[in-house]
Amino acid sequence: MPRPEPQTPILGTRTLLLVWVSLLALTALTVAVAKGRLLADYGVLAALGIASIKAGLVLAFFMQLKYESRLLQGLAFFAVVTLLTILAGTFADVWYR
């Protein structure tokens, strides 16, 4: 049924630039952490963690997920959970052989 939908807001240039600068800063950070071996064994975890923050920023602001309906946010979460689930199922095998 064609319901009139509230539009997502038009993001201001300042917001977008702020997000971009954060993304670049996080990129620099992740390179520094890796090169400097700052976190030794936790390197991969840190790298993936920083990557997830970057991905989150792109999803929330560039893709406007922050401003979308609860339904869409829920479906996106569900898709990610699905991926994590198949990783978990595979690792239930691989880790315990």
């Binding site: 990129t27 992740t30 390179v31 890796a34 071996r37 030794a40 390197g43 991969v44 790298a47 993936l48 920083i50 990557a51 970057k54 991905a55 792109v58």
Partner: peptide
């Protein structure tokens, strides 16, 4: 790519 970059360039 945000995930590919650390996995291929920053593996420690």
């Amino acid at each position: 790519w945000i995930y590919l970059f650390p996995l291929f360039y920053l593996v420690t």
